[in-house]
Design a protein around this nucleic acid. Structure first.
Lengths: 71, 71
DNA sequence: ACTAAAAGTGCATTAAAGTGCACTATAGTT
DNA sequence: AACTATAGTGCACTTTAATGCACTTTTAGT
């Protein structure tokens, strides 16, 4: 998954669970400012930050073998 | 995947492909110092760094729905 | 159009990631 | 034991993620 896909996955999952940024910030332990920055596509979160957000949404970060090198 | 699992996955994959840290640093564009720090368990890489290393090893970062909350 | 909730931005500060260089430690080989 | 390749560490520096506060913009509901 590229950067944008990861962002979008988090955003969609958050909305699917009817949680706003403020609530996600609280339950994940990530600051609201950082979450906003991340979701608005500006930023390069640390693995820890990404994991905190993911966990709070019932997701987990993982590594998968890429099928094709192109595209 | 927890932090250690991610580290171990990268390390194992690198060794499986018979690539040493120096080579991985070169092909991924991540500095050797950062890679060493990461593989030795000290560090909290940015998503970009993790993606660079993963891509270079034919892996990709992804988000997956967690099956169970406990364990 | 008005309002309220939610999302996004600018600025400043602090903490930490990323880096290079030189060094040490740890395999693995002969 | 000596040698070599590979991995890990200490120090210093630069960049940038993470943060709080106040503000603006956008979205949704009436």
């Amino acid at each position: 998954m590229h950067f944008k896909e990861i962002i979008d996955t988090i955003k969609e999952r958050r909305k699917m669970m009817q949680v706003n940024q403020e609530m996600l910030a609280e339950i994940s332990g990530v600051s609201l400012r950082s979450l906003k920055q991340f979701e608005s596509g500006k930023g390069n979160p640390t693995l820890q930050t990404l994991q905190r957000l993911s966990e709070a949404l019932g997701l987990e970060v993982c590594l998968r073998i890429k099928k094709l090198d192109d595209q």
